[in-house]
Write a protein that binds this DNA or RNA. Sequence first.
DNA 1: CGTAGGTTTGAGTCGGGTCAAGAAATGTGG
DNA 2: CCACATTTCTTGACCCGACTCAAACCTACG
Lengths: 242, 242
Amino acid sequence: MNDHPLITRLQYGCRLDDRERQALRDLCTDVRDVARGVNIVRDGEKADHVNLIMSGWAARYKVLPDGARQITALLLPGDLCDLRCTMLARIDQGITALTPTRVAYIVPQAINQLEHTSAQIGHAMAWCSLVEHATLRAWIVNMGRRRAVERVAHLLSELAERMAMVAPNGMASHFVPLTQEEIADALGLTPVHVNRVAQELRGQAVISSKRGGFTILDLPALQAMGGFNGGYLNPHMIPAAA
Amino acid sequence: MNDHPLITRLQYGCRLDDRERQALRDLCTDVRDVARGVNIVRDGEKADHVNLIMSGWAARYKVLPDGARQITALLLPGDLCDLRCTMLARIDQGITALTPTRVAYIVPQAINQLEHTSAQIGHAMAWCSLVEHATLRAWIVNMGRRRAVERVAHLLSELAERMAMVAPNGMASHFVPLTQEEIADALGLTPVHVNRVAQELRGQAVISSKRGGFTILDLPALQAMGGFNGGYLNPHMIPAAA
DNA sequence: CGTAGGTTTGAGTCGGGTCAAGAAATGTGG
DNA sequence: CCACATTTCTTGACCCGACTCAAACCTACG
C-alpha cells in the first residue's frame, strides 16, 4: 500500500526500492494545512524551501498591473513547486490554494542530497521537470490555437488524466473542484464566457457542474472536443542508464 | 575573446574556467548548416541527440489537425533543445529553422558526463532550464491576458533582451528576423492582424519593418507598451553552494 | 436570516478573425 | 538581364467569438 503522492508521482519516472520510498517519506515531515484562498508562495518573495502538494489543489499565477490574473499552472497532489528554488533570488509568481490543501515544506538541501544519493530519484525529478515543461507547451498551444469550448474541454481532459495518475488505485474521481472564474483565469477567458461554455457542455451531457466544481460525465467526448492527446503527461520513457 | 554562444549562455548561470570552456567547445564539433524552412527536429521522431543553436533563429512548434501552427518557443544562439532527450522516447513538437541556421549535434552522453565532471556546468544547465521554464510561463501570461498590440510589444521586447544577452559585446542588433506570420504563430494571432498591429507600432515610430523582419527603434517605449519586465530572463541568481 | 462568493442572464460592443484580392519583394531559370 | 513564380505584405469588407457592464439569482455558511 502506498498512499504518498510524491512516491506515486516519482514512480512514473523510475523504480524505487523500500529504502528510497522511506527516504521520500522522511522528506515530508513538515506538513501544513493551507486554507482555500491563502497564498502558499507570494510573488516577489524569496523562496527558501520547496513546496510539495500533499493533497488539494493549488495554482501558480501572475497578477498584472490592471488586476487581471493569469494562472500558469494548476498543481495537484505530488506536484513539486520550485524544486530549484535555491538557485533563484526571488520567485516571480505566486502560488495559492484553490481548495483546502496540505503542503509539505521541504528543505532544498535535503532534496539535493537525496537526488545525489539515489540516481533513481534524481532521474525521476528530472522526469517531473520534463513533464511540467511539456505541460506548459501544451497550454500555450491550447491558448493560442483553440476556441473557448475546445480550450475548456482540453483543460478538463488534462486534469482528469492527471487526477487519475495520482489517485490511489481506482479511486480516481471525475470531479474538478475549480470555480468558473478559476477556469477562466487559467485559459485566458472571462468568467462570463466560461459560464456560457459550461452551459453548452452541459447541454451535450459531457459535464455537469455545480457551485465550485465540474464533474466529467463523458471523458472520451471531452477529449475529442478538445483535441486532447495525453502523451505529454506520461510520454513513453526510457529508463535511466546504469 | 569568447564568441561561443554556449559559453556565453552558460556564463549567466556560473563561472567557468579555461578547462571548462575548452570542454564546451569540444562538445560542439559536429556543426551542420540548416537552411531556412528546414526541420531540425520532426514531431514524433525519436530524439537521439541534443541540438544547440550556434547561429540563426529557430522555432519549436506544434501543428494541429486543422493545419493551424502554434510556436511554443523561439530559439536563439546558445539555446539547447531537448537537453534531456535521452529520457524521452519521442519528441512531441517539431523544431524548424526560421533563418539559415548553424546547429551543433551533441551526443547526450557527452553532456551528461560534462555535467557530472563540472558542478559549475551542471549548475548552469539547470539554470538554463529554469529560465526556459520562466519564459514559457511569461508566454502564457502574455497570450492569456494581453491584447494584440501589447502581445507583440512584449514578444519583441523579450527578443531584444535575449539577443542582447547572447550578442558578442556591444554587437547587439535590434533586428528581429521574423515574418509577420511567424509572429502570429507565436502569439496566437492571425498574420492579417499582426500586420495591422505592425502598422500601428510603425505609426508610433516604435518599430520599423520590412519584408522578413522588424527593427526595434524605441525599446523603452516597446517595453512600456508590452508591460515587459525582463526579470524572468536573467533573474538574480544565487551561486551554487560548495 | 443575512451576507458573501459564485453563477446566470441579457443587451450591447469590439477586438480580432475570415475571405479574397492585389501589391511589393525576392528568387529562379532561361 | 528579363519573364515568371513564390513569398510576404497590405488592404477592404464583413462577421463572429468573446468581452463588458450590470443586474439578478443561488446557495453555502456564519
